[in-house]
Design a protein around this nucleic acid. Structure first.
Lengths: 209, 209
DNA sequence: TAGATTGTTAATCGATTAACAATC
DNA sequence: TAGATTGTTAATCGATTAACAATC
């Protein structure tokens, strides 16, 4: 009976995971909330609160075991199993995502891409096939994918999400610059590239020179 | 004298901008906080609070003028001027960012890429040159760039940021999976792809099936 | 044991929501 | 004018920080 974890904490989970992985690589075995806080830019108090909400494993007087904590967060995030992605849109960005090795390291493997452009379809390889978008219905069942990645024009995103849903896919990683509507039993996270660039622009403009 | 805008509001600015642009394309001239809230998934109350903190321009009894509001947000975010980006790392992802047309539409143009791989350097074109990383110091002044985009391995990101800073660049868009340290007169936003994928994984695992 | 650091409760802070008077 | 909807103040909610007793 894992307790409720607030959204704010969930958004920090990947950061914890990343920093603990770094610590592990540096050969650091245990760390206090004080030190971890300094590295992550959080207060020690918040570190302890966070770790407790997701079932932390600290030890008074010593701190936290780096490896144990990382393993715990890893399984909390469901990274202890493999995820199979299909990418809809095989342009430069779609191909870049398909080939980005960091995802594979965490168990996210791309099993296929889809596109409407014959040129892009021709560029598929046996390991990373690019199928015609019109074959999605017939191909998806065999691919056993659980994540759909939308890397296509904004106006095609909504209908594609709906098709993925009908085909049983319940998770979408959306790179199209639109906010999608989706059923409650679906998980969607957005990767709005332009949005973060716009925030950067804002910060540049309002900098304490 | 533009008042203080909280971080929470700043993070929503791009979303306002995106939705207002959509409304404009649909030919909608004015909208109430009620309707805009429905589209954006926010309460009318929050819409009004937000718009007021960034100097909104509503009219009692009618609502907000779509175009005027969009223009206002556009200039608030500093999108009324051109930004010149240099991309450090010309792999698939770096090239995908360089060629992503949406950024250009908002005035973010890529003026050059840098890389250490001769193969990638050779693939540069006159419009999108890929220079050797070792030439950064000599080339950057002439490029007149104001944004550095880091699309390189995590262990090279920090030193590259520092080099960019020395060369006068005060804004960094970071795709490397590390948290960087930077001076207070620098703006950095992170695009941690893996982080959002991990959040998706969490949500898949904890779904109300 | 004594010292250090967690786990946890209480206090504070900030952001969101509700309510309603102002006004177009 | 009457109706609608904003602008803004007050109430609520949630997240962060502070404090300290528990305990390794």
């Amino acid at each position: 009976m894992a307790g409720y974890i607030s959204d704010a904490v969930i958004r920090r989970l990947p950061s914890y995971y990343r920093h603990l992985r770094e610590l592990e690589q540096e050969g650091i075995l245990q760390i206090s909330s004080q030190e971890l806080g300094e590295r992550m830019g959080l207060t020690p108090s918040q570190i302890r609160q966070d770790i407790n909400t997701f079932g932390g494993v600290g030890r008074q007087g010593f701190g936290y075991q780096v490896q144990a904590l990382r393993e715990h967060i890893r399984s909390t995030m469901g990274l202890d199993r493999e995820h199979r992605m299909v990418i809809i849109g095989a342009g430069r960005m779609g191909q870049a995502i398909a080939n980005y090795s960091h995802f594979a390291r965490d168990g996210f493997i791309t099993v296929a891409l889809f596109d409407i452009d014959p040129e892009r379809i021709r560029k598929g390889t046996p390991e990373l096939p690019v199928y015609p978008a019109e074959e999605m219905e017939e191909r998806l069942p065999g691919l056993q994918a659980d994540i759909g990645v939308l890397v296509l024009p904004a106006d095609a995103a909504q209908e594609t999400l709906e098709l993925l849903y009908r085909m049983g896919i319940r998770a979408v990683w959306n790179f199209a610059p639109v906010d999608l509507h989706y059923p409650r039993d679906m998980a969607v996270v957005n990767m709005h590239l332009s949005d973060t660039l716009h925030i950067l622009s804002y910060q540049m403009k309002h900098m304490e020179s």
